[in-house]
Design a protein around this nucleic acid. Structure first.
Lengths: 149, 149
DNA sequence: GTAAACTGCAACTGTGACGATTGCTTTTTG
DNA sequence: CAAAAAGCAATCGTCACAGTTGCAGTTTAC
């Protein structure tokens, strides 16, 4: 995978979660972009699917910005993953436009079931954790190793 | 993912496995390439890591070709996957060259543990199945739906 | 012994998805 | 009205992977 959207989306959600914990208002895309070393417009594009699914609420206007759409313990990492990568399958199937023999055709079928199961395993692994878990884990890491070189 | 190497490698291994079952000699890269609708040279490149790990044995010379290096029930799909994709991680981490705040640094750490667990879940899912399972599953599909349109 | 058929290897080109930027419009607040 | 924000469309850049070509090395068939 060369797709870093999940990584970015997770970071954004962690920032929003910590802002919510600290009682801070919505974070603007410019603020988030600065934390992520990225462009505000890029951040806004990242937020689109998260907003569509209700994980994030964006308010327009002068004092606008983004905030979480739900409490952190009701947002799983699997949901964030789904939003970040959309319908894109984790494993690509070989094009195989016109199968030469029936074996190749059924091999594609077999591959599909395999990868579906593997992808489900990933989602299950991510579904066990919530954003709240992530925040507490992050806090733990920060207190244990305050300033890593 | 836009990486179809796993899919290709699995197909190659299935062909080699069925050839072994049928008592056929080694398959040349040209034969494999024809079945895969690909170039012989491309197939040979695919075979390199599989050969390195002993999953496949390639013999040079006029009547050469590729055959399995082990019985089919002693080759797991996880091994094939590892060969096909090498060390490339399933999930890419965002570049984050120079973390702006300590939180981003630890977020990277957290992300690494997350994805490591997810990737392990995938390998576990693939490790449960052997190439022999794949062959029998393929045979079942072929007899159930001999010629799908 | 030589020609044929194969693997092995290196260099190269093509390409498509994703990353990222720019510039604008729309909305809301001060 | 002006400032500051999201929203949106068009565009450019780039990099890993896909695929090709060509040739050197090796082994077998005849």
């Amino acid at each position: 995978m060369l797709d870093i959207r999940f990584s970015r989306a997770l970071q954004v959600m962690l920032f929003l979660a910590m802002a919510a914990d600290n009682g801070v208002g919505p974070l603007s895309s410019a603020e988030l972009a600065h934390k992520l070393n990225a462009n505000p417009s890029l951040v806004r594009k990242l937020l689109v699917p998260l907003t569509d699914e209700g994980l994030v609420v964006c308010v327009k206007g002068r004092t606008g910005g983004a905030r979480l759409g739900r409490p952190t313990d009701r947002i799983t990492l699997a949901e964030i993953y789904r939003c970040a990568v959309g319908d894109k399958p984790l494993f690509a199937t070989s094009p195989g436009a016109e199968p030469v023999c029936p074996v190749t055709a059924h091999a594609g079928e077999y591959f599909a079931t395999l990868t579906a199961e593997a992808e489900e395993a990933v989602l299950e692994s991510l579904g066990d954790r919530t954003l709240a878990d992530g925040v507490s884990e992050l806090r733990r890491l920060c207190t244990d190793h305050p300033r890593q070189g």
